[in-house]
Design a protein around this nucleic acid. Structure first.
Lengths: 269, 269
DNA sequence: CGAAGTTTTGAGGACCTTCAAAAGTTGTGG
DNA sequence: CCACAACTTTTGAAGGTCCTCAAAACTTCG
């Protein structure tokens, strides 16, 4: 269980501030991934898409365990995740950490505090990551100009809320085995949605300590649970960081994983 | 632990469809309470306020345990709570219920699924309650016309999300004693904010079974925990439903209750 | 190479659950 | 208004899941 540390955000290295990353004609930088996520739900108009892609931003490489935001901060920027994995976490009195959500590339991580003066939680890199910083005022300006973008971002924060609900169920009612497996299946599913691998074979480089913080367990117990999940053939997490779920449908049934709460179908109306 | 039942929503009695309730010149119906909540954060312009108060709605009296919405439903209305207490809940595979949030009068309970085609969770009355139903399209029309209302509602859903985060921490990292006490302190705090009592002396008529579902515990253990909280002088829950917290500051320290996550200060910018 | 972090394993124990039953409370129909 | 059913709360006993403490093996990094 990790306790609060004194790491400083400015340990983050900054580079290639405004460069776009393209592959086969598809933008695979953080903005492009976020746009793709939005447009999987509902395509934007050409003009809104263009405005979104022109969001000014700075890119940072951050190493694992870097704290990008801490409870009590007054951020004026949101974070878009381009590579790696971020965790959103809160601490109890005794300093025990609970990760309340994990984020995959393409996630617009801190729309949550777009309107909050003071952050009520922290955000830290669970693996080495690449993040984009975008000023709140730039995002709010976009939402003022483009109703479709406004709806898309509001929708996105509502999906985040749906994930929080599922996580509360996860830590509140599921036992350690299904809890850990459910979380890994969610991540696999979301990574596949984001085009970062297959849901039944993906890269997960977070430590078991992090996984323990995400599931409300201790690292010791997570280790035991993972070995049981392997012997029972539900999933394997190789030391390389690759997760394999040999029989997805069976695992989903055993674990009770139903992805409806991820709302991949997009907004209505 | 309650399992899914076949209760029907239409058991709800409907009455006094469009009547306003006023006391000492203050609107104390569901719309008025919701408006007050919004304006505690930031006042609206006179015209926006008037439009908000004219939201068409129908009022229903619902008895405790009535299911107002179930996972899988396709609601076209949101619920505003006028009296009583509602719970938002999800079920795991085995039918165990986890309440992921509780709602007090003045809460706009189902903005969460304003944009979702299919509900991923249920809403049920934890006590006898009075609720207002408002068509999604009426709310969305308001947000289209009034940027300030749009911001207020988006902000409100972000605060809901902040509550979810705290609840995940609560069930994930706190022990049974602090978990139960923390939840009751949150409710007291929110009831006082809503003008429905004092945070250290308020009415809480939910059953211990419901409290167990909200804390991820069993009713048996909740009963034991409540008796320990009483003997330790942290709080009393009388059989009448009245909760007393004799020394709020001490309780807050013991439990680790810090209300910053409730974001009573309102949106910035 | 040493330091720090991560994973694994073992032993013991605490917290919370399960099962069971009784007492108390609320609600309903005759 | 009473009788009875359903629900709620309390209490006890036993047990299991998960935690704590501890140490060793392993990995990563400066």
């Amino acid at each position: 269980m990790i306790t609060r540390t004194a790491n400083r955000t400015d340990a983050a290295a900054e580079f290639k501030t405004h460069e776009r990353i393209e592959r086969n004609g598809v933008l695979t930088d953080g903005i492009g991934l976020a746009l793709a996520k939005i447009e999987r739900r509902r395509p934007l108009s050409a003009i809104a898409r263009k405005a979104f892609l022109q969001l000014p931003h700075r890119r940072c490489i951050v190493s694992k365990h870097t704290e990008l935001m801490r409870a009590g901060d007054r951020p004026n920027e949101s974070i878009f995740l381009e590579r790696g994995m971020l965790g959103r976490s809160k601490f109890d009195d005794a300093g025990a950490r609970q990760i309340v959500s994990l984020h995959v590339p393409g996630d617009m991580v801190d729309l949550q505090s777009l309107m909050f003066e003071v952050a009520d939680h922290g955000i830290s890199a669970e693996t080495d990551s690449v993040v984009l910083y975008i000023l709140h005022r730039e995002i709010l300006a976009l939402t003022d100009c483009f109703p479709e973008i406004r709806r898309a971002l509001w929708f996105d924060t509502l999906v985040d809320a749906a994930l929080y609900r599922e996580w509360t169920l996860n830590v509140g009612r599921r036992n350690a085995m299904t809890r850990v497996a459910h979380l890994l299946m969610e991540i696999g599913y979301r990574l596949e949605e984001a085009g970062m691998g297959r849901r039944d074979a993906f890269s997960f480089r977070m430590s078991q300590v992090g996984l323990a913080d995400a599931t409300g367990l201790t690292p010791v117990h997570v280790s035991r649970v993972l070995s049981r999940l392997k012997t029972e053939g539900i999933l394997r997490w190789h030391s390389s960081g690759e997760v394999e779920i040999p029989d997805w449908d069976n695992a989903a049934k055993v674990v009770g994983f139903e992805p409806d709460y991820l709302h991949v179908e997009g907004p209505r109306g």
